[in-house]
């Protein structure tokens, strides 16, 4: 079966400023995929090209094996998009806008009616169906935006910062909803500024910076391979001579009134734990407490890009 989305050597330049410098992505059908990157990294441009909002300049993009330029009618009909910025409309109710959106996808009003009723219900918008967008709260606007991306019942859902600016409760609701869609077999491509979101939801993530993919893998793989862990041991009986005896470990000692803390930096804390405890005990230290610390995806992100995701 062809990949849901296959991006090869994607390049894009805006007025001589390179936005994308050869992006490669493969997203398998049914995968929940996250694209992480700081502002201006190229996430929205990549999504824009896949969905047809941005013109393709260099490289190829296919959706379920079909080219997005040659077979745009097929590829666009497979995708639903929730853009980062809210759209607005001065004339029509949100229900009418959902029917219009379905219509653009070639779905008649009669065919669209059950889906639209379901979406209004699922996103808690039934009571607001006769309202205009400007009459909705920020959270409702976001729900409407995501509901609109689902009117064509797409196999691929692309969400650009879907939980930006929403409260914790709505974020949890959206996460659960997206998990449900994923269980139904939909392919989901998500960009987010919330690394926790990617850790919670995505099976695979790519980190993109300055128009290039820096790394790709499952969140656990990335943390294991690129993150640094630690083992923190509260001890008494520490002597200066110890520093020479523990030459094969990277550590720092912080003395305190009731003994001291030795902080070891290791790649795999669980694996190194026994060795550390043995070394300290055999050298006359009394161990009071042991704590294992692990890197998060955020640490991996900072390690790779040299900046925090919100920078």
């Amino acid at each position: 079966m062809p990949a849901a989305i296959e991006v090869r050597n994607l390049t894009k330049t805006y007025e001589d400023v390179p936005a994308l410098r050869g992006i490669d992505l493969t997203i398998q059908p049914g995968e929940f995929y996250g694209l992480l990157g700081p502002n201006g990294a190229g996430k929205t441009t990549t999504i824009g090209i896949i969905t047809g909002l941005v013109k393709l300049q260099g490289g190829t993009v296919s959706v379920f094996g079909k080219d997005i330029v040659r077979d745009y009618r097929f590829t666009r009909s497979q995708i639903g998009v929730s853009p980062q910025d809210f759209t607005s409309d001065w004339f029509f109710t949100i229900e009418k806008l959902l029917y219009f959106q379905a219509g653009y996808y070639g779905i008649t009003q009669k065919e669209a009616a059950p889906t639209i009723e379901r979406l209004l219900e699922q996103f808690g918008l039934t009571a607001k169906r006769d309202s205009k967008i400007r009459q909705l709260s920020g959270g409702m606007k976001r729900r409407f935006q995501i509901a609109k991306s689902l009117v064509n019942d797409p196999d691929i859902l692309i969400l650009d910062e879907p939980t930006a600016g929403v409260d914790v409760e709505l974020r949890r609701m959206l996460w659960n909803y997206l998990r449900g869609l994923h269980r139904e077999g939909k392919t989901i491509l998500l960009t987010t500024h919330y690394i926790e979101e990617a850790e919670q939801l995505c099976e695979k993530v790519s980190i993109i910076d300055e128009g290039k993919i820096i790394t790709e893998g499952t969140p656990n793989e990335l943390i294991r391979s690129l993150g640094k862990g630690g083992v923190e041991v509260h001890v008494s009986g520490w002597e200066e001579a110890m520093e020479k005896r523990l030459t094969n470990l990277t550590f720092a000692y912080e003395p305190s009134e009731d003994g001291g803390r030795v902080i070891f930096t290791v790649d795999n804390p669980e694996k190194e734990l026994t060795k550390i405890v043995d070394s300290l005990s055999s050298n006359g230290c009394t161990i009071h407490e042991v704590r294992v610390t692990k890197s998060s995806l955020e640490d991996v992100f900072i390690e790779l890009t040299g900046k925090a995701i919100n920078e």
């Binding site: 029509f92 797409p154 196999d155």
Partner: peptide, 19 residues
């Protein structure tokens, strides 16, 4: 199940004209 348009998107066209 998505609707795939082969040649002319008549429904989309009519929808936008009506809009």
């Amino acid at each position: 199940m998505t609707t795939v348009i082969q040649h002319i998107n008549w429904v989309g066209f009519r929808t936008l004209v009506a809009r």
